[in-house]
Amino acid sequence: MFLNQQIEIDTLPQISSVALKPISKNYLKIILLNKALVYVICIGLVVLAGKFIIEKEELPDASMYIFGFALLVCVCNLILSILAFKKRKYAIRDKDIIYSKGLLVNSITTVPISRIQHIEESRSWLARKLKLSTLKIFTAGESGSDLKIDGLPFEEAKQINDFLSAKVNGNH
């Protein structure tokens, strides 16, 4: 163990005590719309494949089963992504930025502000309509350490961006 240090681990700021803030509920609409599009395409492909391939082999039942299976997968995926939506949370501390997500596999990523290379704010057409914004925070090296926070309220994203930019520039 590394606990034999001068620093009292208990007195350090703890990740567990940070109050994480959920992202805007409006973002769920975007997720649902995107998902719906993917589902329609998938099920459409399954139906088409069923029409052309399986019926020729004279297995009319099989096409129904596959269709049902595809539908089931879609429904499960939908339920999971709605439940997982609640897990998307973020927080900004004085020295770092925290983002947590994931239902089946939950992860909490923290990027120290002093390690930020640059920040990008992007808004899709749909996000503009819903007054949302996506914040991308880039660090050096491996892309795994880059943060992407979707579905921030536009005003807040702007404030965060200003705050972080000021901090990052202040450091150099």
């Binding site: 990740i15 239902l103 089946l104 596999v105 939950n106 992860s107 909490i108 990523t109 923290t110 990027v111 120290p112 390690r115 660090t139 050096a140 090296g141 491996e142 795994g144 350490s145 943060l147």
Partner: peptide, 29 residues
Amino acid sequence: KIQAVKLKQSMFQKRIEISSVYIYTASKV
């Protein structure tokens, strides 16, 4: 030299209170 830190835990690991730490550097995770 750390760039970011990540805590990762699956649903099953949550029940038995086990978790992994990922450490990101500019060259490797």
